[in-house]
Design a protein around this nucleic acid. Structure first.
Lengths: 196, 196
DNA sequence: CCGCCTGCGGAACGATCGTTCCGATTCGCT
DNA sequence: AGCGAATCGGAACGATCGTTCCGCAGGCGG
């Protein structure tokens, strides 16, 4: 039994091609899933990556795991945006920045929409963290008088879902439709609705 | 050669079981698709109907045609609702009645949501008729002063898409979430947004 | 440069599914 | 009741796809 170089490396350095392929597989999967939807075959992903199917299975237990990994990337990105928005000293600016991000994000990733369907549940830890930030951000905006007193995090969460739908229903990459939708809805969230 | 009873009946009365099965197949398909989604197998639909798969294929050319037929039922129902709303003498009441229908309709048919995905395009004749009615209804509501002057049919169409998303994002059959969402958005559509 | 081992390719397998087809069955008519 | 045709049931087929497996190539350490 020889001494090992370090506590974390057991025998050998990983092969360079293997390291490269980690990123290659994920990138190819993102492209092909975006073009063909979740029912794209593993074969077509492997072809796009310039690899064999076995190489994919050495990294991901199966197709579901591959889709989950991609979905996680998006959830994480949204979580970071919520953190940045909450850090803004002006709650109104932070909220609008966040909603802008949601719209732009959905527009950019419009072809990936079907991938997340039912893949990340409401009990996901990251999603819960994101919503908690939305809740705090909303409360700060209410306290500052930028939203009507009865508005809660649930209202903003509904708006986020609605933005997704509006972007999906809008052809091409026209950003004006969802921006107008957000402006209108924010006006409703600011308004005194005690009469209606 | 005998005289035939009429110009449209060629030989015989249709068999009673065949007439029954027309409705049986469609009902079974609706149930199974609602439970399992569009990827439910023809076999499982036939089993639910208590029939063989061949019986389904005698009525519908294939699975896609079966899904299209179901989607068409929903599109037609929405079209009728738009006609009823437009017939209301009070544009504001007609509009709110229509939006109420959309929310209730999506709640009731929540499990069918994935069936229509990409199945009925924007160039569908019935869908175009529906949108034209929405456009007229919106114009009447604007003229009556119930909506801000810059609101168009596109805004209401976006709201319809948003309602669908909010219903889908709400657990169970709680109708309060989308009702609140609609009330908020309508307040935004009524508001003078020249400042924001 | 050599030998060893990690990682790769892609054929093959089993499962699933949409669709077809034809013998058996059931119905309408006389 | 009996005949002929319309309709049905479900086995069988071909295509597709996810996954496994193992012989082989290519890179790493010496």
């Amino acid at each position: 039994m020889r001494e090992r170089p370090g506590p974390s490396s057991s025998r050998r350095a990983p092969r360079r091609d293997a390291v490269r392929n980690d990123a290659v597989v994920l990138q190819a999967a993102r492209e092909v899933f975006a073009e063909q939807g979740p029912q794209a075959s593993m074969e077509s992903i492997a072809a796009r990556a310039g690899l064999g199917v076995g190489t994919i299975y050495r990294r991901f237990p199966g197709k579901d795991a591959l889709l989950d990994a991609i979905a996680r990337l998006f959830v994480d990105e949204l979580d970071e945006a919520s953190a940045a928005a909450l850090a803004d000293p002006d709650p109104a600016a932070g909220l609008e920045r966040f909603l802008d991000f949601v719209g732009a994000f959905n527009t950019e990733k419009r072809r990936y929409a079907s991938l997340l369907a039912g893949r990340i549940g409401p009990d996901d830890e990251v999603s819960r963290r994101t919503f908690e930030r939305i809740r705090q951000l909303t409360q700060k905006a209410v306290d500052a008088g930028h939203l009507a007193p009865d508005v809660t995090g649930d209202d903003i969460r509904a708006l986020v879902a609605a933005i997704h739908a509006v972007v999906a229903a809008t052809p091409d990459e026209d950003g004006s439709a969802w921006r107008r939708f957000v402006r209108i809805h924010l006006a409703g969230l600011r308004a005194d609705r005690t009469e209606g």
